[in-house]
Design a protein around this nucleic acid. Sequence first.
DNA 1: GCATAATTCGGTCGACCGACCGAATACCTA
DNA 2: TAGGTATTCGGTCGGTCGACCGAATTATGC
Lengths: 204, 204
Amino acid sequence: MARALAKKVETSTMLLEAAKKVLRQNGHSGLSTRDVAAAAGVPLSQIHYHFGSKQGLMLALFDYLNAQLLDRQNAMFHDATLSLSQRWDRACDYLDEDIASGYVRVLQELIAASWSDPEVAKVVRSGLMSWLELIAEVARQADKELDGLGPFSAGEVAALVSSAFIGAESLYLLGAEKKGGPVRQSLRRVGDAIRMAEGKSSKR
Amino acid sequence: MARALAKKVETSTMLLEAAKKVLRQNGHSGLSTRDVAAAAGVPLSQIHYHFGSKQGLMLALFDYLNAQLLDRQNAMFHDATLSLSQRWDRACDYLDEDIASGYVRVLQELIAASWSDPEVAKVVRSGLMSWLELIAEVARQADKELDGLGPFSAGEVAALVSSAFIGAESLYLLGAEKKGGPVRQSLRRVGDAIRMAEGKSSKR
DNA sequence: GCATAATTCGGTCGACCGACCGAATACCTA
DNA sequence: TAGGTATTCGGTCGGTCGACCGAATTATGC
């Protein structure tokens, strides 16, 4: 049983990695279960055996990816040695990494898929709400360390930051950056703004 | 000839409106040319007659919609009687309208479609770059009226604002707002922040 | 080593898609 | 009204998709 279970997990992972690869290359509308099975080097029927359906595969893929990223972000945000602006810079570094690795494309495709599929939406939404909460936590900390958050609540800051990152990813994928839209650069600048606020803060 | 041309334009418009409707209901992956033709009440072959292909229909649809929205936004931004914060509030009003009318869904679907289709990307990108330029213009004005834009250039502000709106739309479609993510509310708050800056500005 | 369950495999089925075609019709010109 | 062109129409073709099935293979417990 032990070896069989290991093999089962291995095949599942192969399929998830293959799905990630195909999704990155072809997008959600161009993803067929046949392509995924071929990329994973396993028969087509394995997908339905392991995940029940194409939708089941998508849901499992989101969980698989989001868990990894959320862990990473959580660790970084709880590193007490980093200042707020340093955390922002790190988040921008992560964005660059995730674009390069293709994570961004995959996650954006899953978000887009969820607009048409309530089941997927449920999973993706709950995954992204974890991000909102994580960012809100940092915002609450910023509220203490700096001179407040202006007219914004911590939750509103989190929503704004999330929107900006999600939107920036979308625009990057569109190719806006190559046509003179300083998308990632403008996110980096926010780090400068935070640094200015840190310098001026009366609480340090 | 005059009547034939009028009829031709009319049928084209019917098809574009039908495509908008289907896209809003089913998303891009769920859009079939048959559904569009049925919704428009015209035969399937009309789509290929008027637009050559499904892709041609999508491209024409984007031009059709973006031209409308850009005109509206352009008129509002050039209304000299409005203050910066009032313009921001108006932009938020427009967002609410466009969500209600389904424009947001359609445009987001087209953006997502462009991730997989370089031809569509080219058209969508150039359409969105017009927005960037429009917003940058307003940002330049803000740079004069307020006490500068902090560490941001006008282009960077435009990129940031665009990202935030695009991302907010995406998150709204996902249903984040119903699960406690104050997406549109946080955008409205930016108007409050601008009002605060207007009040403090030394140049008024 | 034998019986049983878990897993893998190739193959196929019905549904749906975009694209295309040639006939039929409506329209304008003269 | 006659002739020619622009448009509309029903129908079909090749191809791909997700889903499913039953046999074959492998691993496990006794």
